[in-house]
């Protein structure tokens, strides 16, 4: 790692102030950022830790919405969202391993927007609202391609407001070494419709599979998807899987998610 200064503010206001300095970057749980720093792929002058800000942590229900603080660890979401939103708690429990889940956070995951991260699928599939220190961003506008989001320099995700679906499930085909999603699909059924979001598969990061959504509105059953396929074009090609393999997995994992949810 290159050398950097480290500061740990205890309020959102102080964190935003610290992040306005030249060369300052935020760090949440650090489960992706620290390995990136070790590889010298990033060289901040100052790291502003968000782990000491109590107002960023916690899970609470607000009507039909589950509000989760951006600094809430995956382990805490798995535990504290289980009763209100079991599909989301189950997703959190599949991220990394127990030690990673104790450090990694919701806000860190979506701000990084790794194309194979789990949380973006849940945020997009529920049509959640990303709340920052300065505005609210709809999930459909937040994710803007691999490692790219609508966040401005120095803008901090403070919470995510998840509309709670009638039923939901996340089906993940985990890459066995990294435990990232080789392909993961979150399906959420609401009174007004169905949303399907796919992570791990596309070079553009998380995306909605609208044809599947339309088919599932007509019939919320795996069979409704039997004739649907996503095109191979734009799917990730790496040593873990070809575009055709990932496109196939999108169908398989979506059917599994629907089965698990229904």
């Amino acid at each position: 790692m290159y050398a950097f200064d480290f500061v740990k503010p205890s309020s959102i206001d102080d964190a935003v102030k610290a992040l306005s300095a030249e060369g300052a970057q935020p760090i949440a749980g650090g489960q992706t950022l620290i390995p990136t720093l070790k590889a010298r792929l990033n060289a901040p002058e100052t790291l502003v830790s968000l782990t000491g800000i109590a107002e960023l942590k916690g899970v609470c229900r607000d009507g039909d919405v589950l509000v989760i603080g951006a600094g809430t660890s995956h382990a805490a979401v798995a535990r504290d969202a289980a009763a209100e939103f079991p599909g989301l708690a189950a997703l959190a429990l599949q991220i990394g391993d127990p030690a990673v889940r104790n450090r990694g956070t919701l806000g860190g995951s979506i701000a990084n927007n790794d194309p194979a991260a789990c949380y973006p699928a849940a945020v997009l599939a529920t049509g959640a609202t990303v709340v920052t220190d300065r505005r609210e961003i709809a999930a459909d506008d937040f994710f803007q391609g691999m490692f790219t989001t609508a966040l401005e320099e120095g803008e901090i995700v403070t919470s995510v407001r998840f509309p709670i679906p009638e039923v939901s499930a996340y089906a993940k085909f985990a890459q066995p070494a990294s435990r990232f999603a080789l392909t993961g699909v979150f399906v959420a059924k609401f009174a007004e419709g169905v949303r399907v979001a796919v992570t791990g598969a596309s070079e553009d990061g998380v995306f909605r599979w609208t044809e599947a959504e339309e088919a599932l509105v007509r019939s919320f059953a795996p069979e409704a998807l039997a004739d649907l396929r996503v095109p191979d074009g734009g799917m990730i090609n790496d040593l873990h899987g070809t575009p055709a393999y990932r496109a196939h997995l999108v169908g398989v994992m979506t059917r599994r998610a629907v089965k698990a949810a229904s």
């Binding site: 480290f6 740990k8 620290i34 790291l47 030690a99 104790n102 450090r103």
Partner: peptide, 18 residues
């Protein structure tokens, strides 16, 4: 792996200052 405030974490992936 060590425990920080009672919870297991990977100490090579945590900044000491934190």
């Amino acid at each position: 792996v060590v425990h920080v405030d009672g919870k297991p974490v990977k100490s090579c992936n945590v900044l000491a200052m934190d």
